[in-house]
Structure formats: structure tokens, C-alpha cells
Amino acid sequence: MILEVKDLVAGYEPGLPIVKGASMQAGAGEIVVILGPNGAGKSSFIKAIAGLVPVTSGQVLLDGQDITATPAHQMIRRGLAFVPQTENIFPLMTVQENLAVCGGILDRHEVAGRIDEMFATFPDLARQRALMAGSLSGGQRQMLAVARALLVRPRVLMLDEPSAGLSPKLVGQVFEGLQAIRERGLTIVLVEQNARAALAIGDRAYVLVEGREAHEGPARTLWDNPLIAELYLGSKGHAVSA
């Protein structure tokens, strides 16, 4: 297993955990989807793994190494990249600078080459490299945030609701992009509200309810699970239309 999370308890205030003992695993080259109703602690779960929410107990292992107490800014050096849901770019810096900003992690002479590779992968960004990132569209911002995360060659890429606020067409593009990234052997962990789109590309899925995983299974069969049907009864129609 590349990423292994065991009984994670985490929250902003002591005694008030939001994540209450959740576990998950992700293998090499897998896309793992984390689903759950609003307020289930999905987002806090992934942020706690990334070191952004204080962890009170439990363990996070990356390639067998314990990274539980690692400060957030060290995570990416260990090979774990995280793309937040909102405000995931620096709006007052150019597209190129947004990529270069984490260049401190790479070798100095390697940075320019990696940025060029990212521009080759995301030609849309290359065209706008000198523009302020704040002027990009929602889809392009998401693309930039993913490109920046990939720049430093992480082994695991975690995304918090990459489809939020995007048009259905863009959602399709983003998820196709993620699939292409996975082809290169990267492990992807995805928190999604848009269950249908996420399950379509996912290998396995976890359902988080009230801070714990309530179900785990192959992504493609999960949709037929009665638990999911119940949880997503209200949002199923929405998910389809999205």
C-alpha cells in the first residue's frame, strides 16, 4: 500500500473531533474516491492526512513511513501533494510563478525543465503563463493547482472536490485529466460531492458517515449499494444531471 490511514481522529478543537477514527488505504496507481453526506468530515479527513487539521490519534503511513506528525509544508517533500477545494492558487502571481513557487523543493537547475513539462502537459496554461493567475477561469485555476501539485513528482495526489463550482463539461475534462495522470502510476485520493462522476473513474471508494468510514468497496459496484442510495437519495438526481 502506498498510503495507509489507520483510525484517524482529528479536529480543530481538543475534545471535539470531526474525524472520529476513520481508516483508508490506497495502492499504487489507484484512484480512491471518498464519498459521504455533507458534514461527514470528508474534507477534514483529507486535510488531516495532509497535516492541515490537528490529529489527536491514529496513524498515516506513506510507503510504510509514519508521516502523521509531519508539518503540512513537509508533506509535499515526502511525496504527498494536496490540492485544496477553493483558493488553491495565488491570484496575484503569474501562472508561471504559481508553478515556480514550490520550486524550492526541487533541485535548482531542475525547476525550469519541470515547469516546461507541465506546460507541455497543460497547453492551456502555457498560453497564459505570463497572466496573473487571478484572471484565469475556474477550470483553468483547477488545472493550475493540479499542475503545481504534480510539478514536484508526488507519489500520492489528494484533491478536495476538484469538480466544485465547475460546469458539467469542465467536470468531464477534469476527471479525464485525472485519469490520464493515473496512467503514469500516480495514486489519487479524491474527495467528491459529485459521486457519479467520481465513481466513474474511481477504482475503490470509501463512504464516510459521521467521521468514520461506513463502507468500502469497488467503485463500480458501490452505486448499487443500498447505503449509497439512501445517502444520496436527495442528491442522486443532481449527480446524474451533473
Partner: peptide, 24 residues
């Protein structure tokens, strides 16, 4: 410079700066 970029990035969004690996 890299240091200057990191300072500007942190000024704009301290939380994101941590996420992208900037040493606060």
C-alpha cells in the same frame, strides 16, 4: 528569487503556502 516568491505567496495565502511546501 525563490525566497521572494515564497514571501509573496505566504503574504497572499498563508494556508495555501503551507500546502505547496513553503517553509513558513
Amino acid at each position: 528569487t525563490q525566497r521572494g516568491r515564497e514571501m509573496r505567496a505566504y503574504a497572499q495565502n498563508p494556508a495555501l503556502a503551507r500546502v505547496v511546501g513553503i517553509d513558513v
